[in-house]
Write a protein that binds this DNA or RNA. Structure first.
Length: 118
DNA sequence: ATTCTTACA
DNA sequence: TGTAAGAA
């Protein structure tokens, strides 16, 4: 029941460690050292779309910050936004396939009725 | 005060 | 890409 995910973003270092702390666009911009306009543009270009909350304000999760770092690095190296979009898409694809492989791995050799000492 | 959208240079 | 006006 502690749904503090739409009111305030984490402010200081001595804050309660929630599951997913959210940050305002200003904090992200300062943290990553990029203009807020660029973050808004990334949102418009479907590269990284943060959640919206009270007043239609963007709320970036730690996960988005992580993605943002990668995106900024790629764009900084000359990758176009559409290109970055593709990279992120592939990244998600890889993540999904890895999960599937993990499921299969756990499925093989570990049945409910583990009968090894037959 | 901070952020949001739209528009312009 | 960076900045401005006007609203929330």
């Amino acid at each position: 029941m502690s749904g503090a995910s739409d009111d305030r973003a984490r402010t200081g270092p001595a804050g309660p460690a929630r599951d997913e702390p959210f940050y305002t666009i200003g904090q992200v911009a300062t943290l990553l050292d990029v203009p807020q306009a660029q973050l808004r543009r990334l949102d418009e270009l479907e590269v990284v779309q943060p959640e919206r909350s009270t007043g239609n304000q963007r709320r970036y999760s730690q996960d988005e910050i992580d993605t943002l770092r990668e995106v900024i690095e790629l764009t900084d190296e000359g990758v176009t936004l559409p290109g970055v979009r593709k990279v992120l898409e592939l990244r998600r694809r890889v993540d999904e396939l890895e999960q599937q492989l993990a499921s299969k791995a756990g499925e093989a050799g570990e049945v409910s009725g583990d009968r090894k000492g037959d």
